[in-house]
Design a protein around this nucleic acid. Structure first.
Lengths: 197, 197
DNA sequence: TAATTTACCACACAGATGTATGGTATGTCA
DNA sequence: TGACATACCATACATCTGTGTGGTAAATTA
């Protein structure tokens, strides 16, 4: 289990946290010492040991700057259920942890597209949503795909009727678009994201 | 501008990339040399210089492991429009870049909730979607909020009718829920995410 | 009261690390 | 042809860096 930190230990952890965020590089022991005015590297070592013991960081011994934040202490939990008792949220059922970094460090060819129009609104894809698209020529029936029709990119369901394929909107106000030589498949929607202001 | 890399330079960049992803720590010059069988650190320095000159990395001189990936070369572009011409996607109108890391390194109290039920379906929030929630007691009219009703967490629109507040579903099959002492506001939905398999 | 934890200090040291200097060889481009 | 980029090599060195040893003092906990 993750144990409580003292105020000073929290400050040191926060500094490491910020360094990784801003410099994209964990600090050295001496950089930590300098930040807090410690004249001895041993002091920092004591702090790091405490943070390791309490489950907040891991240290890869011998390597320079090898302080790693322990994920479970920082990642956002995905909750399957939330139990009562405010102001503290009792975490009853953690499905897992969100780590969107995986998406961004994927080696696949991925890009994001801002959705225009309401043609997929019944599939929960609204105007101004962001869809992450993996570029690929192939797609399966039922996939949400991005296709180029002439010069315009469009997000649609790929469906099949008999021997013909259609780009099917999820909005009864729009007509399906037959897939022909004017239509080229760009990729498959793998994620949709919407931000609320 | 970002210039083309040679195959070997690409390999070195890929190695740095993977090291940062897997170890969460950029490699040292000697770690790179070992990976590629270089017997001289000078060789690695030449590669790093080339990568710096071509705009792929930045180096903080003097510091250990201080190789930083240049963001624009790696982040996923958010496209406002996509122009024709496959297989190369012509990027015409880049709105910006997605960096969800910001969310995860935020100091705000954020958690994610897996949506159950279809009560917000007309607002584009579908069953099994993931909503990122910022914990806060206050909310504004029109916000999508997460509230506890008894023991159950629910995602709804916060609306006002006269002097009364309601949790309003976005599905005509459901009734609005009056906000009373049995209802406690947990937070505000700031992002919704859906993944397609 | 005794043991433990927290919170610092000084000093030393081996090895890790970035950098410098100066090569060789090959291919490309103007 | 000459300048330049690419792709390596060997060696040296100052300093950075993690770690070890051994302290002191106060607060907390059993």
């Amino acid at each position: 289990m993750i144990k409580e930190l003292t105020e000073k230990q929290k400050n040191v952890l926060q500094f490491i946290f910020n360094k990784i965020k801003n410099d994209k590089l964990p600090p050295t022991i001496r950089e930590i010492a300098e930040e807090f005015g410690f004249s001895s590297t041993g002091t920092v070592r004591d702090y790091l040991r405490a943070l390791v013991d309490k489950g907040y960081i891991k240290i890869n011994e011998g390597k320079a700057r090898a302080i790693e934040l322990v994920k479970d202490a920082f990642r956002i939990p995905v909750l399957g259920a939330v139990a009562a008792g405010s102001p503290t949220l009792a975490v009853e059922d953690i499905e897992g942890y969100v780590d969107l970094n995986d998406l961004f460090f994927s080696d696949a060819d991925i890009f994001a597209l801002r959705v225009k129009g309401d043609s997929m609104i019944e599939a929960g894809i609204m105007p101004d949503d962001l869809v992450l698209v993996r570029r690929q020529q192939a797609a399966e029936i039922g996939d949400v795909v991005v296709a180029l029709i002439g010069d315009e990119a469009t997000v649609k369901h790929l469906v099949r009727e008999g021997k013909n394929f259609y780009l099917h909107p999820a909005n009864s106000a729009y007509q399906p678009i037959p897939v022909n030589e004017d239509v080229s498949l760009i990729g498959k929607v793998i994620t949709s994201i919407r931000r609320y202001s």
